[in-house]
């Protein structure tokens, strides 16, 4: 067996170095991939929260969202047969209360509660109403403690308390049109849903 020549050794070291740099590149790529996937929900500027904020400038009051049309969709892949209204909230000013007048309602009503990233933290339909009513308070953990401290000991609370994951978010109400002619009524049914801030200076409902 011949002794390895100096050139062979140098070449071997070159391959080892290339392999090392290749592996290092893959490691960096993996970290960059994971970091970007995890960071996107916090960085995206046209997420659902931003789109709702663009359509509904005010807080604590439901506003009808524009009916989607080809080339004009506020949020993609929404059901064209669904009329929608949104109420943006900020719990810094106090809990937010949502009430639905179910006596007037016929047809399907959807309610979903979204955090700052647009994720749904609670959802229900009119079928989920307790004792024929929908009365929901969206609260921070601190506000829940305050409310519970004021609860009478001998009564079951009549409202549902939802602890929001953050102070900001939005509530979506949806009403299904059974055909094209029903769309106006479906939009009208959304006026049965009201949202209001219970803060000290909390302005109006609607």
């Amino acid at each position: 067996m011949k002794a390895p020549r100096a050139a062979d050794i140098r070449q071997g070291e070159g391959w080892m170095a290339a392999l090392g740099y290749g592996l290092a590149t893959l490691c960096v790529a993996g970290v960059a991939h994971l970091a970007s996937v995890l960071a996107l929900p916090h960085l995206a500027s046209r997420d659902s929260f931003a789109r709702i904020a663009q359509a509904v400038p005010h807080l604590h009051r439901f506003a009808l969202l524009p009916q989607p049309a080809p080339g004009a969709e506020l949020t993609p892949r929404q059901d064209p047969m669904l009329a929608r209204a949104a109420c943006r909230f900020d719990l810094a000013g106090g809990p937010v209360r949502l009430r639905v007048d179910l006596s007037q309602l016929d047809g399907l009503l959807l309610l979903s509660f979204h955090d700052r990233q647009g994720s749904t933290f609670y959802a229900m339909t009119d079928r989920g109403a307790l004792r024929g009513r929908i009365d929901i308070r969206v609260v921070t953990p601190r506000q829940l403690e305050d409310i519970q401290a004021e609860d009478p000991d001998d009564e079951i609370p009549q409202d549902l308390r939802l602890v929001a994951p953050g102070a900001e978010g939005f509530i979506l109400a949806g009403s299904l049109a059974l055909d094209g002619a029903d769309m106006e009524s479906a939009r009208g049914r959304l006026s049965l849903v009201a949202c209001a801030s219970e803060g000290d200076g909390g302005a109006g409902g609607g």
């Binding site: 996107l40 659902s48 789109r51 892949r77 994720s119 749904t120 339909t125």
Partner: peptide, 25 residues
């Protein structure tokens, strides 16, 4: 739609602005 959705779904949702249907709906 949920907060517990996998990271790819949440990133895709943030990018597209889509509001998917929640299981309760």
């Amino acid at each position: 739609a949920l907060r517990e959705a996998d990271p790819y779904t949440r990133a895709g949702r943030a990018r597209s602005g889509e509001i998917p249907m929640a299981p309760a709906e």
